[in-house]
Amino acid sequence: MLDDRARMEAAKKEKVEQILAEFQLQEEDLKKVMRRMQKEMDRGLRLETHEEASVKMLPTYVRSTPEGSEVGDFLSLDLGGTNFRVMLVKVGEGEEGQWSVKTKHQMYSIPEDAMTGTAEMLFDYISECISDFLDKHQMKHKKLPLGFTFSFPVRHEDIDKGILLNWTKGFKASGAEGNNVVGLLRDAIKRRGDFEMDVVAMVNDTVATMISCYYEDHQCEVGMIVGTGCNACYMEEMQNVELVEGDEGRMCVNTEWGAFGDSGELDEFLLEYDRLVDESSANPGQQLYEKLIGGKYMGELVRLVLLRLVDENLLFHGEASEQLRTRGAFETRFVSQVESDTGDRKQIYNILSTLGLRPSTTDCDIVRRACESVSTRAAHMCSAGLAGVINRMRESRSEDVMRITVGVDGSVYKLHPSFKERFHASVRRLTPSCEITFIESEEGSGRGAALVSAVACKKACMLGQ
């Protein structure tokens, strides 16, 4: 009897593995994704193909990295998701002549009506938060230079001027797309009239992360975010950046690689679950690469896999709870928690219980395998993109072996128990001629924006502006 049951459990697990095998990517698959990513990057950089390229390769006008001589107080704003952060950054000489960066910050959550109302409502709310922060720190009387981390696709015309191309991540505030974001912020500050600010720089969160990590390690020339969304930036040779005049030196390019796949480059790798996630998203047909990796989508992918296993009578005796059938019910943090389970399955059992399920031991094991399959594919897909960037940098610099540091931020990278190990191992397999160091950014977005502002202020002083 026991043997029969054991055989049935083994057969069930084997069927589960057959279904989950769809998520496995072979090294040849990853090399294919990497080569296609490089081709799209090239198209994004070139003037004649930029418009139709899915990977936009947006110039950021960040050319210099901090040298350690900029000092002063800077205000930093960070808008990239449902939370908005205001930070005071003091850049100065530390002990023994070292450079020191001290920060104080406060988080504000953005109400739904500000995210989806008008641009005026959104930026009025942001300036209200700045006003509140300055009151708390008794700094209303000071006109501070301000660095703005704005983590949406922007076409820069200068370091302090950028046109919002399109909202992502659930934002829909009308009247912002096609307009200068810094102008919208300046107008809102003017409307309030109770404080003055000098907006000197606007950067993407990947750029802010790279600059913040450069402060720790001067070989950091790539910034990457794996959180709600997924994106990367890197220092490109100016001669390859056709959208900006000049051939000397390097400029940081914001790849906006989340949109890779929007022209069909990933079609052969998309599964039924991916198509369902895409169809029910706020932007169907867009940001397809990001939807395979980002935390906004990972939990939902797992939920759809679990429903398939229920329908195949391989999980929960073929019956799903009402909660499990509800879109968004299986949160991405559950994926991390399930994979963090120590082996007694308590954590998995508790999560499934909150979803109205009474799982068996085998159910718990199957749910864990589903989570591992989805998150491992995410790590491997992400590795193909980064390997594409790094191999490109090595080739354009004609280096036999390139040493490089990548600064990384984002909740999936930082909080998932195995993502970074799987990701690092896969990147290294795909970049055999590179020695890569990964560092995690601390308060990256805010500190990085302030350091970019410090560079901009120093330049302005040198130019006598």
Rank of each mutant, 00 (worst) to 15 (best):
D3K: 08
D4Y: 11
R5Y: 06
A6D: 08
M8K: 14
A11V: 13
V16W: 11
V16D: 08
Q18P: 07
I19W: 09
L20S: 07
Q26Y: 11
E28G: 13
L30Y: 12
K31N: 08
M34G: 08
R36L: 12
R36P: 00
E40N: 08
D42C: 09
R43V: 13
G44N: 08
R46W: 05
E51W: 10
A53C: 08
A53I: 03
S54H: 13
V55C: 09
L58V: 06
L58R: 05
Y61L: 03
R63L: 08
R63S: 14
P66Q: 12
G68T: 14
G68H: 15
D73F: 12
L77D: 04
T82S: 09
G94E: 12
E95Q: 13
G97S: 13
V101R: 07
T103R: 05
T103G: 08
H105S: 15
H105W: 10
M107R: 06
Y108G: 04
S109F: 11
D113H: 11
D113N: 07
M115G: 02
T116E: 02
E120S: 11
M121C: 14
M121Q: 07
F123T: 01
I126N: 00
E128W: 07
I130F: 06
I130E: 02
S131L: 03
D135Q: 09
D135P: 04
K143Q: 05
K143V: 09
G147P: 06
F152C: 03
E157P: 05
D158T: 04
I163H: 04
N166W: 04
T168A: 02
G170S: 01
A176R: 01
L184M: 07
A188E: 00
K190G: 12
R191H: 11
D194Y: 01
F195I: 10
E196K: 10
D198K: 15
D198T: 14
M202D: 00
D205E: 00
D205Q: 00
T209A: 08
C213N: 15
C213H: 05
Y214Q: 15
E216Q: 13
E221I: 12
V226H: 06
G227V: 07
T228G: 00
G229Y: 00
M235G: 04
M238R: 09
Q239W: 13
Q239M: 07
V244G: 03
D247M: 01
M251V: 12
V253W: 02
T255K: 01
T255C: 05
A259Y: 03
F260R: 01
G261E: 06
S263T: 15
L266S: 13
D274P: 05
L276E: 11
Q286G: 05
G295R: 01
E300K: 03
L301R: 10
R303N: 04
L306M: 11
V310Q: 10
N313F: 13
F316L: 13
E319H: 15
A320E: 15
A320H: 08
E322T: 09
Q323R: 14
T326I: 14
E331H: 07
E331Q: 07
E331G: 13
R333D: 14
V335T: 08
S340A: 13
S340N: 09
R345G: 11
K346A: 15
N350H: 09
N350R: 13
I351C: 10
L352F: 07
S353I: 08
T354F: 09
L357K: 06
R358V: 09
T362I: 07
T362C: 11
C364Y: 00
I366N: 07
V367M: 07
A370R: 04
E372K: 05
E372C: 08
S373V: 13
S373M: 10
V374M: 08
A378F: 03
H380A: 11
C382H: 05
A387K: 03
V389F: 01
E395G: 14
S396D: 08
S398A: 11
D400S: 12
V401W: 08
V401M: 15
V406G: 00
V406Q: 04
G407P: 01
S411E: 01
S418I: 06
S418E: 09
E421A: 12
H424V: 14
V427N: 04
P432Q: 09
I439Y: 09
E440W: 13
E443N: 10
G444Y: 05
S445N: 03
G446R: 01
G464I: 11
